[in-house]
């Protein structure tokens, strides 16, 4: 933070107010409904670009499974075995080197591209990139044309093929619209740079951070430091989409 004083100045007042509001919530209203104090959430940080660094060497097959089920629990989606129509926000990919037979497992989800083809092709603008780089579908305006699914190079998106019930409050989802990984945007809005997406929470034990969430725009952030030191692979880098999700160990 200190390295970027301009940014700090710019956002400090707003953040200060938000911080105060949060304090007020604790002090004044324990257990009472106080509707005007809803500003506790951090909200969207316009200067940030959120990303994730996934260290495939630190992930066993069971870890990747844990990522997937954590995401399912968090957002309330399920996939029946062998289903072609059920949604998969994140999936376990097995990569095998043909010569050696060596296998790797990694979680594959929306890569939150900087120049997302899904956003470019969406006729209504329902596919959009937030100011902080998270790519979402606004399900209120999605017409279900599936053009974005055709355009995504990572097959990251799912169409909801049937009526749903019992959706979770944090992840509204319904028939006839398209969805994908949100980078746990509800956690990001609450916790800002300290957010831990559900998949990361499932695999990060003690100090190991097999999935590291952070701000790619902040050179001091851990993710930027690690990328600087160890590098990270952009999938299909040839397409120049600059995904926000990077992989190590590929």
């Amino acid at each position: 933070m200190a390295t970027n004083p301009g940014k700090l100045l710019q956002s400090s007042r707003r953040d200060f107010l938000k911080g105060t509001a949060a304090v007020a919530t604790i002090l004044i209203a324990p257990g009472i409904f106080l509707y005007k104090t809803g500003q506790a959430a951090a909200g969207l940080e316009r200067e940030a670009r959120w990303g994730m660094l996934i260290d495939t060497n630190a992930l066993s097959e069971a870890d990747v499974d844990a990522c997937v089920s954590a995401c399912q629990r968090e957002h309330g989606w399920q996939t029946a075995e062998g289903s072609r129509t059920d949604a998969q926000w994140v999936r376990k990919l097995r990569l095998e080197e043909p010569e050696t037979g060596h296998q790797k497992f990694l979680p594959m989800m929306c890569q939150h591209c900087e120049s997302p083809p899904c956003v470019d092709v969406c006729p209504t603008g329902a596919s959009f990139k937030r100011a902080d780089g998270i790519v979402l579908v606004d399900r209120h305006t999605c017409i279900g044309c599936r053009y974005c699914m055709m355009a995504c190079p990572y097959k990251a998106r799912s169409f909801i093929h049937e009526n749903l019930k019992d959706q979770l409050p944090v992840a509204p989802r319904g028939k006839g619209t398209v969805e994908s990984c949100t980078m746990c945007v509800h956690r990001v809005d609450r916790d800002g740079a300290d957010a831990v997406p559900a998949c990361a929470e499932a695999v990060n034990r003690n100090d190991s951070k097999a999935i590291l969430f952070g701000n790619l725009n902040d050179p001091q952030s851990e993710i930027s430091r690690r990328l600087r030191e160890l590098g990270g692979t952009r999938l299909r880098a040839d397409m120049g989409l600059n995904p926000g999700v990077r992989y190590q160990g590929l």
Binding site: E81, R91, R94, E96, E97, P98, M108, K155, L235, L250
Partner: peptide
């Protein structure tokens, strides 16, 4: 997505 690898998934 991964040229040179054999890929498999539930998707």
């Amino acid at each position: 997505i991964f040229p040179g690898y054999i890929v498999a998934s539930s998707f």
